[in-house]
């Protein structure tokens, strides 16, 4: 439920009309307009995923996913402290709105594409993702077990018959 709410929040924020400078974009939209946006201030909205990775003294990397594309965000460590839930198998991560300079090939980071953040805001908190067991799969596993058992038993029977002969 919370994941659906977070996704809806993301859709609403992207769809909202806003001034050109502040209009939040998804990572895919930024990637698609990379030549035009290079060196510009952008607002990226998406789910914080994976890990907060230490970069250098006082700075970290955060990867933000939206529309199926993830983009690296370089930001001060204290700014990243606002992120509490990172997306993975068990979690839908915080939805964050990152403002900063988009670099198509960042000179500071070996030509990688990134955003140097100047502000980060958590738009919607992350949540635990329920992964319920699908009981029909027990039937499939049972079928496999029967198949294995039957073939092992038949092999034994055949060997006994051959040995007997």
């Amino acid at each position: 439920m919370r994941r659906i709410a977070a996704t809806l929040a993301l859709i609403v924020v992207i769809a909202l009309p806003a001034s050109a400078a502040a209009a939040p974009l998804s990572a895919t939209q930024i990637l698609d307009q990379r030549a035009k946006l290079d060196g510009q201030q952008v607002a990226l909205i998406g789910e914080a995923i994976g890990d907060v990775l230490h970069a250098d003294e006082g700075d970290v990397w955060l990867n933000v996913l939206s529309d199926g594309t993830a983009l690296g965000v370089y930001l001060p460590a204290e700014m990243a402290d606002a992120v509490h839930v990172l997306g993975d198998y068990r979690h839908a991560g915080d939805i964050v709105l990152v403002t900063g300079e988009y670099r198509r090939a960042c000179d500071q980071h070996g030509g990688d594409m990134d955003i140097h953040a100047t502000a980060l805001e958590v738009v919607a908190p992350g949540s635990v993702t329920e992964r319920p067991i699908e009981f029909w799969k027990f039937g499939l596993a049972g079928f496999g077990l029967v198949l294995t058992g039957a073939s092992v038993l038949y092999a034994r029977y055949k060997r006994r018959v051959t040995d007997g002969a």
Binding site: R131, P132, I133, K137, A141, S151
Partner: peptide
């Protein structure tokens, strides 16, 4: 990861069963 464990239980039994067959 219990849901995933079940995926592999299916995978193991089906592959071993088909292989043995």
């Amino acid at each position: 990861e219990w849901a995933v464990t079940l995926d592999y239980l299916c995978g193991v039994t089906i592959a071993v069963g088909a292989g043995r067959l």
